[in-house]
Design a protein around this nucleic acid. Sequence first.
RNA 1: GGGUUUAUAGCUCAGUUGGUUAGAGCGUUCGGUUCACAUCCGAAAGGUCAGAGGUUCAAAUCCUCUUAAACCCACCA
Length: 905
Amino acid sequence: MKEIPKAYNPKEVEDAIYKKWEESGYFNPDNLKLADNADYFSISMPPPNRTGTLHTGHAIMLAYQDLMTRFNRLMGKRTLWLPGTDHAAIATQTKVEKILLEKEKKTRHDLGKEKFLQKVNEYAEESGKIINQQVRKMGSSCDWSRERYTLDEGLSQVVRYAFVKMYEAGLIERDYRIVNWCPRCNSTLSDDEVEYKEVKAKLYTFKYSKDFPFAIATTRPETKLGDTAVAVNPKDKRYKKYIGKIYAIDLGHGQQEIKIVTEESVDPDFGTGALGVTPAHSIIDYEIAQKNKLPLIKVIGEDGKMTIEAGKDYAGLTVEKARDKFVAWLEEQGLMEKVEDTKQNLSICYRCGSAIEPLPSLQWFVRVNKKVTLKGNKFFKNKTIREVALQVVKERNIKIIPERFEKTYYQWLENLRDWCISRQIWFGHPIPVWYKNKGKKNEEIFVGLEKPKGDWEQDGDTLDTWFSSGLWTFSTLMDKNFSEYKTWEDWLKNSPDMQFHPTTVMETGYDILFFWVARMIIQTTFLLGDIPFKTVYLHGLVRDERGRKMSKSLGNVVDPLDLIEKFGTDALRVAMISGTAAGMDGRLYDEKVEGGRNFVNKLWNISRYILTSVNEVHLVEKRPETKTLADEWILAKLDKVISETTMDLESFNFSGAADALREFTWSDLADWYLEISKLQRQNSKLVESTDKILLYVLGKLLILWHPFIPFVTEEIWSNLESKELLLVQQWPSFAEAMEGTGLNDKINNEILYPFWKFEEIVMTIRNLRADFKVDPAKKVAVSIISKNLEKIKLDEQKEAIMFLARLDKLEVEKAKPKNSVSHVLEGVGEICLHLEGLVDIKKEKERIESEIDSVAGYIKSLELKLKNKEFVKKAPKEVVEKEEFKLKEQKEKLEKLEEQLKSLK
RNA sequence: GGGUUUAUAGCUCAGUUGGUUAGAGCGUUCGGUUCACAUCCGAAAGGUCAGAGGUUCAAAUCCUCUUAAACCCACCA
């Protein structure tokens, strides 16, 4: 047997263990030895962006997903966790542009599309490799043979197919509308990609011309060059007489007509109560303009500079310069009434932080409000994609954990506008549309999977990265050899891996519920007529120790790889998962991971003790015979923790499972049974059975812990004489452990009870002592207490444990406690006698009466619950049994109380 | 403006359909430790479960209001 070091050193073993796992092939479900009727379990890894390295967000998602994957694999399911990476169009392109500018002082235009794309692809490839290495470092048991990338040929095929299908159904259209334009990225953004930042701004109040009847207020005077109307609230009496009138004005760049229209949403109390309508540069104004059939003047161009429509004096100026110039002109003309300081919620690009310029542009949109009927699709019967996406969650085809996010999801969908999917960036999936005579009157358009024959020019734009991510759960499962399939439908339906669809769980952070989860639901229900996943588990975000978001500018970014280097992967994983609840943000800091490391080392030392103490190391898989009360006790506790852990993991309560396991491992096994085992092994008759129990408990414990801390458990497992990796062992079953032993009832009543009794005695003494401190009337008993307390201190407790250990369960009757336990018992009795003399009988009577009331009420409610047929049917057996046990307990308590009450009388 | 969440020990957080005396980790104090583990062991101190009211035999848990904080959506002309 090899020597076991005193402390667990993760650095020395982790990489080798990962290699062993990977080489075993068990990450691939095809290689698992499964029962014929084995259910499947699948997770699609949310693909990390190929923009650099892993961060804590990735680390936490990998920890959760690996936990579920390993648990289900141990449960004997056909388990697939499919890894991959995302090209992350805008994010990656922006990053490479930045590097290019810093290193070579060049822009993408200096390089040209082809050369630039080559650079981006090189960067993405490099970045992908790094990420894959880091995903391995986290211990992720994902199937690398199925790894995918959003720009893979196969995935690109699905993307084109999706576009064409949606186009054919009339859900995708090209239109000239107001879009969110980022002048820095030179591209459109979807509504979700716009963020807001509060900034100081100036509110200018001015008149369009001297003879214009009233003033308007704005923070963006330069856009007013494109105004075509003024909107007022229809209830506003001040402006009633002007409604419908048209005024001709001249802002220094020619004649302009301003119509006075009404609009409900105009706030009469803001500014002058009159809103200058700029249809081309505000989404709301655009909608007002559409209602009133107003013309549209585009005064700001895609480059963020003023257009010729703004007038000769302004054309080519930046927005800021145009503003200064126009403000100066207004003042010169005496039109400016006042300038005030105000706050403004500036819309900015979520990727580069530049100010967004809403402007009209010809783009591709997904229409969310168009009703369609699709053949062979159970969801789409004269429904909109928005309605279907709502329906599948409302009807619980898809369950979101925690549930409250379902509301958030509904709200988002209810407010959803058409989704702009074309982007003017180079890196991404090209839009599968080809033109002839583009932009001319006789323009021809072709939407299809391949370029048509002849002289066609492809649309130069690319698709929103979320358009391809939305297909992720199934585009990754489709056969790479798509050419072997006759039709697209055939490919979709008959790719062998589609057996893993819908994926069982979607695990991700709540921050991308809209960006991604919602899009997957929209696109999958449309294309497959099926849901993408059955359950969505949303984890919280990782914050620093002060609760702040991690950001580069704050310099508080925690690198998970640093923590792994310092404490080991297992320590990091257990730290991230324990002490949290679904959807709640958590904090990550050294001390927390240190706690994880300490636990991992504790487990290491527990096994080090067991492996070096037992006479013969071997795997004990079958429940061994018990010879002492302590043996029974530890096995009963093990059964309890098995059932708790299993139930918790099945109901996504990961933190609870870790807590239960930790409590069992540290408090029950290490602090009690291991100490008892030392004593038991001094008795030659008990050595063999004790060893077996130690090895049995250790074996089961390693399986239970494996999903949380895979490396250390596998490493310890390698010391047990097992032929197979821990990775593919069988999850212990509570029911099986109990089978044939007939111990189920016995354990609660006979085995655990005496031990609990002992714990209870210790507790009683402690409580009494606390009472004496505050209640001088009980002083009388202090001497007795202190006498007994001395005995109950550390040494006496060990004595008591020894007594329990010596107690042969076959000789319970004969065994006579000759030490502390009996003294303590007697002591407690004595105390109680003394206390009785001190109790106010009237008060005590009242107390007991009210308690009887309470217990009777409890019994009533329990009986009601057990009579409820639905509850008995639906609830798991263990829960019902627990309730029955409670009822029994309470009835006993009631009897006791009633007796007490009688004795008082 | 619409919505959601949070407030529990010094700190970070659990607490499952209401049910024994509200828990854990870290920290603090005291004591211990050669023989699995100082990455250890034993013990102690520390809580009006934000506040007020209500429902109930029973409330950290359910309802109403108040206070404080965070987040999401809309929008700021």
